[in-house]
């Protein structure tokens, strides 16, 4: 995809479970699909263990020998590079203290989380990526609401990691999600205020914002200077109020286990009944000459290939993005 914006595609939906996306041949099929849809750059998502050989930095390098070896693997499918990696330090992993559970909201965990960030920073720099995209804080249902002091603790961790990414020539983008303990617009702005604009930016995910009750177009227009990364996808639903606080909201809310029992929240661009003003949002990005990556996702939507193709059609036909 080629226009004034830089477009990439996220691989997250292909890697939905431990061992389903491990064979290099399967990964090549996904990469070729993304390439056929007109994207030559991808976003990776972090993972854990020896099966996550396109997710966990050490395992990628063990499979491909070097950063250049991994890039050669991508280029076989005519994918030229990596825009970014998504990392959630709240998601326990084998490599980090044997599935230790830590939180950015706990000051006692800060040193460990900063240390955990290093392999991602090194890998991303090694493959020529630009943004480390992170989940800034755990889910709201797991802890009491954050007060300003709590938000400052979270911000301090990311400021330290922002120094690391900055020193490596990378950006750090905090990815707001609809379940996070930083939930309201006021809380989000508070977190941004608690971080250094020179080293810490925001990853604006249009569907997550909309579900969480924040208008992505209005927010972008007001805070464009802090938005350094975009995830573009749609949703048909918004949180009715406090659904994100349901115990186990990852399952009870986002997988339809309780409440309104909505099993699918995320949709392709152009979906019927979509709540995101995609054309308005992209127009706003163009107005401001947004310099970052706009990453389109099939995330939690369905058949990843089908959604990549539908998203590509939307970009080409509705947003007027030339394919190449």
């Amino acid at each position: 995809m080629r226009d004034t914006l830089r477009w990439a595609y996220a691989l997250n939906q292909w890697n939905v479970r431990l061992d389903v996306f491990v064979r290099h041949e399967e990964q090549q099929r996904a990469l070729k699909t993304v390439s056929a849809c007109g994207f030559d750059t991808i976003e990776l998502a972090s993972g854990t263990g020896r099966w996550d050989n396109i997710s966990r930095p050490e395992v990628i390098l063990a499979n491909h020998g070097s950063h250049e070896g991994f890039l050669d693997f991508l280029r076989r499918a005519k994918v030229q590079g990596v825009s970014s990696i998504f990392w959630d330090p709240q998601a326990p992993t084998e490599e980090e203290e044997g599935y230790a559970f830590r939180s950015t909201a706990n000051p006692g965990d800060s040193d460990a989380i900063v240390e955990w960030a290093e392999p991602f920073v090194d890998f991303l720099a090694g493959v020529g990526g630009e943004q480390l995209v992170v989940r800034p804080v755990g889910s709201a249902w797991m802890s009491p609401p954050l007060d300003p002091d709590g938000i400052k603790v979270v911000g301090d961790v990311w400021n330290r990691i922002g120094e690391l990414t900055s020193a490596a020539g990378l950006g750090l983008a905090l990815h707001y999600d609809c379940l996070g303990a930083v939930h309201t617009q006021e809380e989000l702005v508070g977190l941004l205020d608690a971080t250094d604009p020179a080293t810490v930016g925001l990853a604006l995910d249009t569907a997550e914002f909309t579900i969480g009750g924040i208008d992505p177009v209005a927010f972008y227009r007001e805070h464009a200077d802090r938005v350094t990364h975009v995830h573009l996808k749609d949703t048909r639903y918004a949180d009715a109020g406090e659904e994100y606080r349901m115990p186990g909201a990852e399952s009870t809310m986002l997988k339809g286990g309780a409440g309104r029992r909505i099993e699918r929240w995320f949709y392709e661009l152009g979906t019927e009944g979509g709540l995101v003003d995609v054309t308005g949002f992209v127009a706003a990005l163009r107005e401001r000459d947004f310099p970052g990556w706009v990453v389109v996702e099939s995330d939690h939507g369905g058949n990843p290939a089908e959604l990549a193709m539908l998203n590509s059609w939307y970009l080409q036909r509705e947003l007027g993005v030339p394919k190449s």
Partner: peptide, 13 residues
């Protein structure tokens, strides 16, 4: 197999 994926890969080829 999957038609969407096969179709994308064939056009890639």
């Amino acid at each position: 197999g999957d038609y969407s994926e096969s179709t994308a890969i064939s056009r890639w080829y």
